[in-house]
Amino acid sequence: MNFCDLNKQYQAYQQEIDAAIHSVINSSSFINGKEIELLESELASFTGVNHAISCSSGTDALLLALMALEVKPGDEVICPAFSFIASASMIEFYKATPVFVDVSPIDFNIDPKRIEEKITPKTKGIIAVSLYGQCADMDAINAIAKEYGLWVIEDGAQSFGAKYHGKRSCSLTEIATTSFFPAKPLGCYGDGGAVFTNNDELAEKVKTFRSHGQTKRYIHKYIGINGRMDTLQAAILRVKLKHFEDEITNRQKAAEQYYKQLNGHVLLPEIVENRESVWAQYTIGVSQRNELKTKLAQESIPTAVHYPLILPHQEAFRNNVSAQELFEVSELLSETVLSLPMHGLITIEEINQVANAIINNI
C-alpha cells in the first residue's frame, strides 16, 4: 500500500500523459510553450477567476503574491501557527514579520476569533492556509481584513478543488495561491504552482515578477525572479485536470468510508457546514500517535505526521515569538495528528485495511 499512489494514477492515465509529454518534446517548447497558456485558461475556468498564473512552485506562488502586494521589510503578516512552513517562511524571506495565530479545534485552520488581538499598526495582511483540504473560515477572515484595511491571501496548497459556500478554493480572496507538488490533490511530476486573482493589475504584476520583472524581452520594469512553470509540467497537469472531478469524488467517498469505520475510535476530522474538502490528507487525532504509527508501519501501512513541530517553535522563527506565548490547539495537534493513506484512486478495500489495523492497535 502507498500513502499517495502516484504510480497507480500514472497507469490509469498513461496513454494521455505519455502523449502530452511527447508532444512537448517534439515541439521543443520547454519554456513558455502553448500548454502554459492553455493550462492557465483551464485553471481559471475551473476556479471561477479571471486570472490563473502558473509558476514554478507553491512557495514561489506565495512569494509572487507578496511581491505583487508590495510587502515591505518591517510589515507584519498574520498566519497560522499550525501549518507547513512555506507561508510563514515567505513572509520572513521578504524581511517582513510573521505573526502567528492559533488554529481552530474544529477545522484546524487559523482561528478568526484570535486574529484581531494580533493586529497592530504594522499589520498589512493575513495569509489563511486551507489545511488538509478544507478551506478556512474565509467569510470571517475577509470581514476582519475589510474592517482593518488588510489584504488576504488564501494559501490553497492543500485545498485546490475544495468548495466554500459553493465557490472553489483559490477564488475566495483578492489573491490566492496553490501548489502542484506531486502529492497534492492536483499534482504535476515535479514542482509547480499557481496564483489566482480577479484583479487585472495584480495579475499583470505577478506575470512580470515571475519572469525576471520583464515587460518584454530584455526590458525589465521590476526586480523579479525566474518563477516560470515549465511546459512539460503544464502538459501533465492538463491531462490530470480532465480527471480531477472524478478523483475529488473518490476522495470524498474514501473519507466517508474512513469516518464510517473509525467513528468512535479516534478523533476524526470535521467538515464545517457549507464546505467541501478535497481531502489532501485524511488526518486523525490519537493520543498515542507515535506508538500507533510504529505499529501500522509493522503492518506495511504508511502514515505521516503533518506537522510534528508548530511554526512558532521552529528555530527559523526563534526571534518572532515570545517564550511565554501559548498556542494550545496547535501544540495539541502537533502531538496527536496522524495522516492516513489518501489519494484519488484509493479503494474501499484499502481503507478498510487501514481502519481495521488502527482499531486493532489502539
Rank of each mutant, 00 (worst) to 15 (best):
C4W: 08
I25W: 10
S27A: 14
S29G: 07
I31S: 09
K34T: 13
V49Q: 03
A61Q: 03
A68N: 00
V77C: 06
I78V: 14
A81S: 15
F82G: 01
F82V: 00
I85L: 15
A86N: 14
S104R: 00
R114D: 08
I115K: 07
I127A: 04
G133W: 00
Q134T: 04
Q134G: 02
W151H: 09
G156E: 05
R168H: 15
T173H: 03
P182A: 10
D191Y: 03
F196D: 07
T197L: 14
N199E: 05
E201L: 10
E201T: 15
K205C: 03
V206E: 14
R210Q: 15
I219Y: 11
H220E: 13
I225Y: 11
M229G: 11
I236A: 12
R238P: 04
K240H: 12
T249A: 14
R251K: 12
Q261T: 09
I271F: 00
V272Y: 00
E273Y: 01
N274P: 05
N274Q: 13
S277K: 06
G285V: 09
G285R: 10
G285L: 02
V286H: 10
A304L: 12
V305D: 07
H306W: 09
L309F: 02
E315T: 07
A316C: 07
N319P: 00
E331D: 13
S334T: 03
V337N: 15
M342T: 02
V354R: 08
A357E: 06
